[in-house]
Amino acid sequence: MGACQNPSCTHSSHPSTARPAFDAGVFSPRAPILKTLITERWGLPPIVKRAHRLLGIAVLILAVGGVNVAYASADFQSGPDSADIIADPAAHDGEGVFLFAEVAAVDEAADELTIELEAERITAVGLSGARTEQTALHEITVRTAESDISGTVEAGSNIQLYGSLQAESTVFVAERIVVDFQNASDWRYMYLTSIAGTLIAAGYFFKHWRVNLRELRFEPRGES
């Protein structure tokens, strides 16, 4: 076997003295074609490898767009959502509804809240931002007398409501209300913890990895 260094001799007409064709190279089960390709890729010059990675990243960024388009088209809610109610307020009386909304006003004496469902349309997008126009504003009175409310509600709170609609979707009889964000201090807490969380993750990450800007990649610290 040692005498044959030339790869062409695998095609020799004397199989008994040459390595069988299927034992060598890409067709061998020990070195499947994919693995051979990868091994070959490792041999590519760094600039080509970087280009490959950047191409891969570009393709995956398009895929992120695709996921977000597909997700936006999927319907995760069994009952009507804000858009359905605005589109046809009379069609949903008596239906069980699970809504996310912002509180417009609170009337504690009457155990009532007011929420506003709003529809907007973008009319133009420029460098300074988007111009929008309001296409619909639908006010709903929420009766909370019988409902179980977690947390304290005030105008501006972001809440979830579960209950049923009545009177052409102008009245919502709430069974349960969950207050997600009561006021500005809740939002501030979320922003501050987001910054703190980012700092913890980034701190721990860059303790162990460094950025190679020229190659656009991360490399482990402490290894050359």
Partner: peptide, 28 residues
């Protein structure tokens, strides 16, 4: 784009699969 679009797609199994792929390509 002229089609429905929601960043909520990132907060899903499908979204994190693709994001993890992007992150992985930042290694050598």
């Amino acid at each position: 784009l002229g089609v429905p679009f929601s960043w909520g797609g990132l907060h899903t199994v499908g979204g994190i699969l693709v994001l993890s792929g992007i992150g992985a390509l930042l290694f050598e």
